[in-house]
Simulated scan of single mutants.
Amino acid sequence: MIFHHIGSYLLLLRSVFKKPEKGKIYWKETMHAMNEIGIGSLGLILIISTFIGAVMTMQIAFQLVSDLIPNSIIGSINRDSNILELGPTISALVLMGSVGSSISSQIGSMRVTEQIDALEIMGINAPGYLILPKILAGITMVPVLVILAIFCAILGGLMGGALSGAVTPSDYIMGIQEGFNGFTVTVAIVKAFVFGFIITSISAYKGFTVRGGALEVGQASTKAVVIGCITILAADYLITALML
């Protein structure tokens, strides 16, 4: 059963990346998908990232109680943790739950109402028309959201440390600047790019292959979120093992 789904997923992707009939229509759909994925998820990502950064600062300060360790190390740990792991992975899991379920429900509803069958009868490449714009929007907007999430997490750590008294702003900023390795940002962007593809493609696959009615569409959306989250965590491990 697993190999059946993997094969169906790969065959669907092959149909998705066929040469489009009219690039102008695809461009319009891509812009619409970028607005839904990027602008529609911006507020949620910023709020979650800010609070994660603030909580991380207080937890790090609680654990580092030794007088031999400078307080500036709190900023360094928070920076690297958010760039390498919390920013990309938490953002991807949140987007899988919101954007992924939405994509699966939209395409699944079109499938059960036979709108996709109508597109195929008219000779339109339905997988390319419905899924390709969402994949392009995902691999474009998810890295942007991850960069904003990292920035907000570091800023939230600064505010959380200052408000709680865990670390002074000057020590925190000093820690952010010390020992910064730019390669960590590259790893975060690679993760975000892969996560964007996983979020959109798996959700679209589950919606495109659904059969039945409204109940099955809801079940497909749930399965898409579960499978997508597991795939994101597995990809996170593989990218970390290969790049670090």
Rank of each mutant, 00 (worst) to 15 (best):
M56L: 15
N78A: 05
I198N: 05
G97I: 06
L158C: 08
E36H: 08
M110N: 08
H32L: 14
P88N: 08
P88R: 06
G138Q: 00
Y129P: 00
E21W: 06
E216T: 12
G228T: 11
I74H: 10
G38K: 01
M141V: 07
G228C: 12
G108Q: 03
G179F: 04
V210Y: 01
L215M: 05
A204T: 00
Y172Q: 08
A162E: 10
A234M: 10
A220D: 10
D236E: 13
P169M: 11
D117N: 09
T184I: 07
L148P: 05
I232L: 13
D171I: 02
V142Q: 04
G100I: 12
P169R: 13
R211A: 12
I239Y: 11
A149D: 08
M174K: 15
Y205M: 03
Q219W: 13
I232C: 05
L119C: 01
P20E: 01
L11M: 08
L242N: 05
V16E: 03
I77Y: 09
F197W: 12
T30C: 07
A149Y: 06
G161D: 13
A162K: 07
L238A: 11
K191L: 11
G108K: 03
M31E: 11
I147D: 02
R14K: 12
V190A: 08
F62K: 15
H32K: 15
G179V: 00
P88S: 10
C229K: 10
I232H: 06
S72Q: 15
G53L: 04
T186I: 13
M34E: 12
I83Y: 04
L215W: 01
C229H: 07
A241C: 06
M110R: 09
Q219Y: 14
L242D: 02
I230S: 09
A235W: 01
I77R: 02
A118N: 07
I83K: 02
L132F: 09
E114F: 04
G100A: 10
I227E: 12
A224K: 02
S91I: 02
N35V: 02
D171L: 08
M159V: 15
F208A: 02
K24T: 14
V99S: 04
G87F: 05
M1Y: 13
G75E: 05
M58S: 12
V226K: 06
F17T: 00
D67R: 14
L148R: 07
I239F: 11
T200S: 09
G43E: 09
F208H: 03
I2A: 11
L132Y: 06
L132A: 14
S98F: 15
V144Q: 02
G156C: 11
V187N: 11
P169Y: 10
H4F: 13
L93F: 08
D171C: 03
I150P: 00
Y129G: 00
S66K: 10
H5F: 11
Y9N: 08
G38M: 01
A241R: 12
Q106H: 12
G43F: 14
V142A: 04
S203V: 02
L64G: 00
I139P: 07
A149N: 10
T89Q: 06
L44P: 08
I239N: 09
L95C: 06
E216R: 12
G218A: 10
Q63K: 11
V190S: 03
V16F: 06
T222D: 09
F208M: 04
F17Q: 04
A166C: 07
K18W: 09
I147R: 01
G228A: 10
I47Y: 05
G7K: 14
S72D: 14
I173C: 12
F197L: 10
T140N: 08
A61L: 04
L42P: 01
